[in-house]
Design a protein around this nucleic acid. Structure first.
Length: 489
RNA sequence: GCCAAGGUGGCAGAGUCCGGCCUAACGCAGCGGCCUGCAGAGCCGCCCAUCGCCGGUUCAAAUCCGGCCCUUGGCUCCA
């Protein structure tokens, strides 16, 4: 039923996990800075994929790594209050990232492995590669020999000759082939990381971590960690590997090479790559400095609006971040939320009858479920799935608008559908955020509304409108209905 | 230069794999009506699309084939 677009084949393929449990690996963050909205885009889409798989009855084992050993992290040692060691700096950003993830209402991964805690596994994998003749040691560093893996380039459709031609001879150093990549790097952090470090005011040298290995003191290369951690926490063959499009080459290409060279097994069955987030035609990235951090965005827009924003484009397309796009995402979410609230209120009201049956409403519910399922099974097509929920919202509104007595069962089905799909699969939540404060706020708002009602009854509409405007300025939207006044925080 | 993805209404964005239900979804913006003291929300309706360009296949193409133009991403740390 479910089909996914596999970067490896470039085609849509039927999804068939190896075992009952789906093994999902998400290429996580290098924690050298606060996470930005581009990272969150991957998280939310991976989260929806995870949720949909579970909804369809697949148990999911979800592994998402934190890269806590990296030159960039080391270069920030001693900066501000970040910490006085590479791992301390990393820990500080991991904490922030976990908070961001919670703020976005992501389902927890099964494991969040860290590179620094998998050095023995990494070393073992490198030894295995050397033993199999796929890697060589020079001066305490170990490189993967790309010419030893005949399928090298199969993910990104690169040919070794092309890669060789474009390689800068000066950068080749001790590598046999320009595309060879480091599995293990001798010594501490590089010169460039030290220079980067010295640009800022520091009181300590950028002493990155080093570990003992059969080749002497050193640090793991960038790509090997993912292979080692995926194999440790999942298996030698995983089902789904998710990551940003910018990782296809060289990162994922190298992961395939080193993993498959070592095990002789296919590393990942399905490679899913998420599109990048852009601002004004440029990708959002730490190095370009054009980013919006997740925590700032959560503060400003809230988790529902952000999720709604990400869900307005398919996972594999690029998306542009703009104020207008956020505003539209907010409208979409609120349209759904209002309908949900209306349905709840109508179902709970005395006008709801179990003997009333509105065929249109009930049909709309089953159509929405069918369409949502069809869309999600078609490579997680989130946008048409959202359209299905919005069509259901329309049917709910129409039902409530045109009936004096409500179809209780029909409304319940609509509510359950929105809860199951909108909340359960899309991870939206149709309750006011910050519920803790709502209790007293509610009473205060109601108090003001009673005053306003008196003014209205007395015909003092000017005064009533003033009160409404003042409430609006505080973030409370007041709406008069035929049978009373409602408000939203 | 090499590799990949994409060009659909004012905006955004499905549909393209499996040609016809596409007279092109959902939404935002705009316009009209209903409702309403007004506004908002909601409902109903409308406006806006030679589906990048050229050629081909076909009874039939946004969808298939060929060529061209343009945009974005990767080839260096990157989600």
């Amino acid at each position: 039923m479910l089909s996914v677009t596999n970067t490896l084949s470039g085609e849509r393929e039927a999804f068939e996990p190896t075992d009952e449990e789906v093994l999902l690996y998400v290429c996580g963050l290098t924690v050298s800075d606060d996470a930005h909205l581009g990272h969150a885009r991957v998280w939310v889409h991976a989260d929806v994929i995870h949720r949909w798989l579970e909804h369809e009855g697949y148990p999911v084992r979800h592994v998402e790594n934190f890269t806590d050993v990296n030159e960039k992290i080391a270069s920030r040692i001693g900066e501000d209050e970040l910490g006085d060691s590479e791992l301390a700096v990393a820990r500080r950003f991991i904490e922030g990232t976990i908070a961001d993830m919670r703020g976005l209402n992501l389902k927890r991964a099964t494991v969040y492995p860290r590179v620094s805690e998998h050095i023995p596994e990494i070393i073992a994998l490198i030894e295995r590669l050397i033993g199999a003749g796929h890697a060589y040691e020079t001066d305490g560093s170990v490189y993967f020999d790309v010419t030893s893996f005949e399928e090298y380039g199969k993910l990104s459709n690169q040919r070794l000759e092309d890669l060789e031609a474009q390689g800068d001879p000066d950068e080749r150093g001790e590598k046999r082939h320009p595309a060879d990549f480091a599995l293990w790097k001798a010594g501490g952090v590089s010169e460039s990381a030290i220079r980067e470090h010295e640009k800022v005011d520091h009181d300590r040298p950028p002493e990155g971590e080093t570990w003992d290995s059969p080749w002497g003191e050193g640090r793991p290369g960038w790509h090997i960690e993912c292979s080692a951690m995926a194999m440790t926490h999942l298996d030698e063959t995983i089902d789904i590997h998710v990551g940003g499009h910018d990782l296809v080459f060289p990162h994922h290409e190298n992961e395939i090479a080193q993993s498959e060279a070592a095990t002789g097994e296919r590393f990942a069955k399905y490679w899913l790559h998420t599109g990048l987030l852009e601002t004004k035609g440029e990708k959002m990235s730490s190095s370009l400095g054009n980013f919006f951090t997740v925590s700032a965005a959560l503060e400003e827009f809230g988790q529902n609006v952000l999720r709604s924003f990400y869900l307005s484009t398919e996972y594999d397309s690029n998306q542009t971040f703009s104020e207008e796009a956020i505003a539209e995402a907010e409208e979409r979410f609120e349209r759904l939320e209002r309908a949900y609230e209306r349905a709840t209120e109508a179902a709970d009201s005395p006008d709801a009858r179990t003997k009333v049956e509105d065929e249109d409403l009930r049909e709309a519910v089953s159509e929405a479920r069918e369409e949502f399922t069809r869309a999600m099974n078609d490579d997680f097509s989130v946008r048409p799935a959202m359209a299905a929920l919005l069509s259901l919202a329309n049917a709910v509104n129409r039902h409530v608008d045109t009936h004096d007595e409500y179809d209780y069962r029909g409304l319940r089905r609509a509510i359950e559908t929105v809860e199951e799909l909108g909340e359960g699969v899309f991870g939206l939540s149709f309750v006011s955020e910050g519920e803790g404060r709502v209790d007293i706020a509610d009473e205060l708002v109601e108090l003001v509304l009673r005053v306003r009602e008196d003014e209205r009854e007395a015909g003092n509409y000017e005064r009533a409108d003033e009160l409404r405007d003042d409430l609006e300025a505080l973030g409370v939207t007041v709406e008069d209905e035929g049978d009373g006044t409602t408000y939203r925080l």
